[in-house]
Measured scan of single mutants.
Amino acid sequence: RSRTTFTAEQLEELEKAFERTHYPDIYTREELAQRTKLTEARVQVWFSNRRARWRK
Rank of each mutant, 00 (worst) to 15 (best):
T36V: 12
S2E: 11
F6T: 03
R42F: 15
V43Y: 07
L32K: 00
A8G: 08
Q10D: 03
F6L: 14
L38W: 03
K56I: 07
S48A: 10
Y27F: 11
T5V: 13
V43T: 01
A52E: 14
E9S: 08
F18W: 14
E12I: 12
R20T: 14
T39F: 06
E9R: 12
R55M: 10
V45I: 11
A52V: 13
I26Q: 05
F47C: 00
E40Y: 04
K37W: 05
Y23K: 03
R51H: 04
R1L: 07
T28E: 13
T28K: 01
R42T: 11
F18M: 02
N49Y: 08
R3W: 10
Y27V: 13
L38D: 04
R42V: 15
R53Q: 13
F6H: 04
T36Q: 00
A52L: 06
R55P: 04
R51T: 01
K37C: 08
P24M: 01
Y27K: 14
R50F: 04
F18P: 00
T28G: 05
L32P: 02
T39M: 05
V43I: 06
L14I: 01
T21S: 12
S48F: 10
S2W: 04
E40S: 07
Q10V: 05
E40V: 10
L38I: 07
R50A: 11
R3H: 10
E9Y: 11
Y27G: 12
P24S: 01
T36L: 14
R29S: 06
N49C: 14
E30S: 11
Q10E: 01
R55T: 09
R50D: 00
Q10Y: 02
T4I: 09
T21Q: 09
K37R: 11
K16E: 12
E9V: 10
H22A: 11
E30Y: 13
R53V: 12
E30P: 02
W54E: 15
A8H: 03
Q10S: 01
A52D: 08
F6I: 07
T21M: 04
K37A: 11
R1G: 11
F47L: 02
L38F: 04
P24D: 02
H22I: 05
V45T: 14
L38C: 13
E19W: 03
F47V: 01
V45N: 13
E40D: 08
T7G: 02
T39I: 02
K37H: 10
F18D: 01
A33K: 07
I26A: 15
Q44M: 14
T21C: 14
T7R: 05
T5E: 15
T36Y: 01
